[in-house]
Nucleic acid binder design. Structure first.
Lengths: 203, 203
DNA sequence: TTTTGAACATTTAAAAGAATTAGTCAAGGT
DNA sequence: ACCTTGACTAATTCTTTTAAATGTTCAAAA
């Protein structure tokens, strides 16, 4: 029974998440995390092979939590537009709460494209698949008409990334550190975008 | 009569454009530009106050050329979707030919947000206005129904930025140096995007 | 199996110096 | 007065070096 190990891993994840979300990946040390848990640095390496794995595990933990909430929502409501809005909102909430967690991913992106493909790519895939799932609901209900669901889901995802990039660029305060207002603005644009997009797919 | 001055400025712009487009802003020196024109570096500063102004002037020169072509197209065809496609295509051509010219703008963006607002912001504005103009054609013809044209144009622009960002991220070769294939892929996605978007605005 | 302190290795940060390049100026040519 | 220039200065970028911080390993102990 590996139960004990799992509990400990969960504790580590919890603490690491707090630090990562607050100060970002770069500015939290393994020593700090260990100290928070009041045990030795070396022990961290007993449970996680390296810092990067720990980071990825935290990401996975956080993202899965959200995905699950989304899936649950999908069970209840079969309304395509509402479902998409819900996804947008929970994504945004997640980013607000754990901004520095993702900040690292974004900036790491631009520097180590090779590595990040394996650790960050999956999250994009998950987001894409979620969109695809929602679109499929619309198609099955005969509400929407789309030839290639996968590709359309990707389009939708990219368009929403664009909203973020667009706002961040034109605000251009400390670039890459969206203010709360920025988040609201991004969400607002994304919603409008989705609205038009879905309308454009109506059968 | 400032004719002579204008001719010289034009010559400088022409040469500077070639170098910037080839090697980018950072890796072309004022000395090189001067040498290409076979006159002294100091003379450049007689016609342009500094390097940044020269760069901006080149950008303006290049972008205006494209905008004008677009406006001409608009005179002929009043078809909204075709007009948008034309804009996308000419934008992409421009980027293919002068990639490093824009590359600098993008990367400068993320570092000196304050400065770039004045030198790069106007180009975004122009693009936005062009989209707005096209959308207005559709509205005037009664084809489209949009409440806020300015905002919708912005949405469209951002969405297209997203296509670029999205493709560049998932290709992740040497990040930020799109291959010719990438350009094609981006254009393809952008066209699909526009298609759906316009359909979503149909009256 | 789990935990640790101490040692090791790798990354980052800062400082100093050299080299490149942006930008200025007084003077000369037209 | 309008152009043009070479030589000068100032600012920036590029190396190199060094020191510090931090990630990672490991033998030994609980």
């Amino acid at each position: 029974m590996a139960k004990n190990v799992d509990i400990k891993r969960a504790k580590i994840l919890e603490v690491a998440k707090r630090r990562f979300a607050h100060f970002g990946m770069a500015k939290t040390t393994m020593a700090e995390i260990a100290k928070d848990l009041s045990f030795s640095k070396a022990l961290l390496y007993y449970y996680f092979p390296d810092k990067h794995s720990l980071y990825t595990a935290v990401m996975e933990y956080v993202v899965n939590e959200m995905i699950q909430k989304n899936e649950e929502f999908l069970e209840k409501s079969q309304d395509v537009e509402k479902a998409l809005m819900f996804v947008l909102e929970s994504r945004m909430d997640l980013m607000k709460e754990n901004y520095n967690l993702f900040e690292y991913s974004s900036s790491f992106f631009m520097q180590n494209p090779g590595e990040v493909g394996k650790s960050l790519g999956p999250f994009f895939e998950k987001a894409k698949e979620l969109f695809a799932k929602i679109l499929k609901i619309g198609v099955d209900k005969g509400e929407l008409q789309v030839d290639d669901i996968q590709e359309t889901a990707e389009l939708l995802l990219f368009a929403q990334m664009g909203m973020k990039a667009g706002i961040l660029n034109q605000e251009m305060n400390d670039c890459f550190f969206p203010s709360p207002d920025d988040f609201d603005m991004i969400l607002h644009k994304q919603k409008k975008m989705v609205s038009i997009f879905v309308r454009g797919l109506k059968a």
